[in-house]
């Protein structure tokens, strides 16, 4: 182990780094407080190339440290990459870091079997489809990687995003970035976008407008992919708003208008509640609201 001046290390050389995102505020604070505990590993080249500890080195530079403790090793690129990956395997890698590790193993010519072996240790299924998905993440632009990292996307949704071409994906990523998304909402949005693409041939900006929130975007897409269902839902909404359900009474309609019946639910505490609810329902019947709702379930209205 030896002290190496930071100026002798090429901090721009990220060829062995799998850390994402590159900046780590907690680490910066920690090194600022007590210094670098674990020495970095450098490849014996001029200038030195970081093998393990690039984030520590970047923190050191931010903190204006002049030297760092380092272990100097003379290794092939392939050996250096494996050291970098193994150095990180003990912590929980995020999905982008896993992708970067896999992408670099592929780039440095490791065999599929060797890559599968590391994938298993990362908790990934050693399958070709998973491998190609992670290679695609590794090869994607920073905005996409940021979205994957920030939203902690599942592989299923990542795979779905990757299937769009680069231009479309950039558009989608841009629109999704500021939205609060659950996994299921995102899955639904992406499925509808795929559907539109299959039907129209491509996704345009009009297909995915800037939206206040995920629900607005989902509703916009639903109108395009499911026009009849949306129209039925809107008609139902109009009837519901007009009818003003009495307290303690609710009407449930099949969300896809498949069932030809509706459920009328009563919340009852005593006989008086029953009488009030029945009077309320009777009023709805006489005003024709129940008939109007039932009409939507018969498959006659579009």
């Amino acid at each position: 182990m030896t002290k190496i001046p930071l100026s002798k290390i090429d901090l721009k050389d990220r060829r062995f780094s799998i850390s994402y995102p590159p900046r780590d505020e907690k680490l910066l604070w920690s090194i600022g407080s007590i210094g670098i505990i674990q020495p970095v590993v450098l490849l014996d080249r001029t200038p030195f190339v970081p093998v393990a500890g690039l984030k520590r080195l970047q923190c050191a530079r931010s903190l204006r440290l002049r030297t760092v403790e380092a272990v100097i090793m003379n290794l092939s690129d392939r050996e250096a990459l494996l050291i970098s990956i193994h150095d990180n395997l003990s912590r929980e890698l995020n999905i982008v870091e896993k992708a970067l590790a896999i992408g670099k193993m592929d780039l440095f010519g490791l065999s599929e079997k060797e890559i599968f072996d590391v994938m298993e240790h990362m908790g990934l299924q050693p399958h070709k489809k998973v491998l190609s998905g992670f290679l695609a993440i590794a090869g994607s632009d920073e905005a996409f990687k940021d979205l994957v990292f920030e939203k902690n996307l599942s592989f299923r949704n990542i795979d779905s995003l990757i299937r769009f071409d680069g231009r479309e994906r950039a558009k989608i990523v841009g629109r999704l970035k500021g939205l609060h998304l659950t996994e299921s909402t995102l899955r639904e949005i992406l499925e509808m976008l795929h559907l539109l693409k299959i039907r129209k041939g491509s996704i345009t900006a009009a297909d995915i407008p800037r939206s206040e929130n995920a629900d607005t975007l989902r509703a916009h897409l639903k109108r395009k992919t499911h026009p009849i269902l949306t129209s039925l839902q809107e008609k139902l909404k109009v009837i519901r708003e007009a009818m003003a359900l009495p307290p303690g009474v609710d009407i449930k309609v099949d969300p896809f208008f498949e069932k030809e019946y509706i459920d009328i639910i009563l919340k009852i505490c005593n006989e008086e509640d029953v009488a009030k609810a029945l009077a309320g329902i009777s009023g709805l019947l006489q005003a024709g609201y129940v008939r109007s709702i039932l009409e939507l379930t018969k498959g006659r209205v579009r």
Partner: peptide, 16 residues
């Protein structure tokens, strides 16, 4: 236009 039927399968919406 597909919806999920009562059996969970995807089918065209009933009107269609």
């Amino acid at each position: 236009e597909f919806i999920r039927g009562e059996d969970g399968k995807y089918r065209y919406i009933k009107t269609e």
